[in-house]
Every structure is written in structure tokens, then in C-alpha cells.
Design a protein around this nucleic acid. Structure first.
Lengths: 143, 143
DNA sequence: CGGGATCCAAGCAGATACTG
DNA sequence: CAGTATCTGCTTGGATCCCG
């Protein structure tokens, strides 16, 4: 895919709306995609099992996200036409490769959550010129 | 809240709503955070410069996202009270460390976009039981 | 069990107007 | 220049009902 140089393609184009990074980001940028992919890391899982694992995800979102992942070729869906129907989901090879950067991100999260939380508290404690967000607020409890 | 082993903590807790991963994911999971962090990789940038670089981002979203990043301690905001006011944004150390996993993700995106696109087209071409999405559609043009 | 379809609330995000 | 404030539309996502 890279025409000129790897470096350039990687760091110059991302700011344009039609670049690969943007497209992928839009796909995996939702709340559930990453969680699902990561939770499929250790193997196959059934629909209801995923639903229990992810915790907080609705049936609609789980279905929707899984469909998206299947469409992207990151997850394989296998239907077992038995008495109570059984559907299993597995990561494809591509899906498995995606897990690596995702794990890196996860490790970062675990390693830096403390700092982030501390920074947030410090930020919120400081009296800022106009801390009164009216529109879209990150911490509604403060008001 | 798994206290046994690091490995376990990394892979067992993410499915609970209050885990670090979820929290970080919710923060960087929006469309702009990652783009901004990445675009600050090579150094300091002014507000308007970021706005031009990111392309497509509104002033509101840029401000909002930058505030969030500042609050998280990932970006440092410096105001130069000059005639035309000048504000510069730089990654903090934490922000810079976040760039690494983000770069990995970006590289994955560049490397796999072709496969993903191909998979999507194949998926869309296949006649599925009921491909008629009514609610939330990924490709409105198909209808 | 594993969804599909529909309704509806909340949040996200754009456009606009105004300020120091 | 670098925002803030507000109104508003669109999207996201949850709840619910139903079906094979």
C-alpha cells in the first residue's frame, strides 16, 4: 500500500479523512469492538458467553459489533444448526494480529491509569478561568 | 480486581466496566483523541495548526478533545499572552508513551486495510439471509 | 439460543455568533 | 488567534417484542 516511503505514509496522511488510519480508527473506535476482539483472544466463544463476558453490552450492540467484525474479516462466525441453535465466534488470523497492538494499548492503560486519574483530579481541583461547561461535560457531578 | 497475577489482571478484568482498559478506551475511543496525540508526535503545535492538520475536526471538538487530553495529563497547554494570543500544545511524557501503542495500531491499519476492504466487499456481495439493515447501517448506499 | 425489527432517549458533534 | 456559549440535528445505543 505504501507508495513513497513507509514513514511518510504513516505520519503524513493520517490527518486526511480518507486515510487507512482514520478508517480503521472509525471501525475499532467504538466502545465494544476492542473489548470483543480482546475477549476472543483465548479462543472460540458463543454469543451468550460473550454477552456475559463483556458485561454491560446489549444484545443489539453485541450482534452489531460482531457483524462488523465479521464483515471486516476479523472474526469468523460459525453456526451450528442444532436443537438450541449454537453460534460460535473466533478470531481470524487478521483478527489475531490486531490483538497485538491492542494488547500494547491495554498494557499502557493498566500502567498509566494511576497517573491519568491523578492528573484528572488535579485538573478538576484547580480553579480555572471558566470551568463551567454547559455543553457536553466530562464530570457532571462537579456542577 | 484480580490480584493474583499481572497476566490475569490484564486479561480477566477488562470485561468489567470499571477496569482501566475500559476507562482508557472510553477516553481515547473517540474519533479525534488518537489523531491529535499522533499529530503532536513530532513536537509542539498551535491550535490553528492542529486544526488545519487534522482536517475535518471542528473547532469545538478540537478544543474539547485538547481539554480532555490536558486533563488526563497527556498534553501540555501553554498560553503565550501576546498581541494575537498564541497557544501551544505539546505531548507530555505520558502522552509520548501513549504514542507507541498508537503507532503500532496505525501500522496495523496501514498493513491490513487492503484485507479489510476486500473482506468487506466480499461480505457485502454475498447474499445473506437478511442483509436489510433498517436500523443503523454501515453502508447506506447499498439500499 | 441467537438473533431481527422497532421505538425512543441521551449523547455526540456541527454551525453559528460572540469575546478578550 | 483561540477560544466560549448555545441551539439543533444526527447518530449511538438501550429496551422491548418477536421469530426460527
Amino acid at each position: 500500500m505504501v507508495t513513497t516511503q513507509a514513514e511518510t505514509a504513516l505520519w503524513d496522511s493520517p490527518y486526511r479523512a480518507d486515510c487507512p488510519t482514520r478508517r480503521i480508527l472509525d471501525r475499532i473506535g467504538d466502545r465494544w469492538t476492542v473489548l470483543i476482539v480482546v475477549s476472543l483472544w483465548d479462543g472460540t466463544a458463543r454469543f451468550s458467553e460473550l454477552r456475559r463476558r463483556i458485561e454491560g453490552i446489549s444484545q443489539k450492540m453485541l450482534t452489531q459489533t460482531l457483524r462488523g467484525l465479521e464483515r471486516d474479516g476479523l472474526v469468523q462466525r460459525t453456526v451450528h444448526t442444532e436443537v438450541p441453535i449454537r453460534v460460535e465466534y473466533t478470531l481470524t488470523e487478521a483478527g489475531r494480529t490486531l490483538c497485538e497492538p491492542l494488547r500494547a494499548l491495554q498494557e499502557w492503560a493498566v500502567a498509566h491509569l494511576g497517573d491519568v486519574s491523578a492528573s484528572q483530579e488535579a485538573y478538576d481541583r484547580a480553579d480555572r478561568p471558566s470551568p463551567d461547561f454547559t455543553d457536553r461535560d466530562r464530570n457532571p457531578a462537579t456542577a
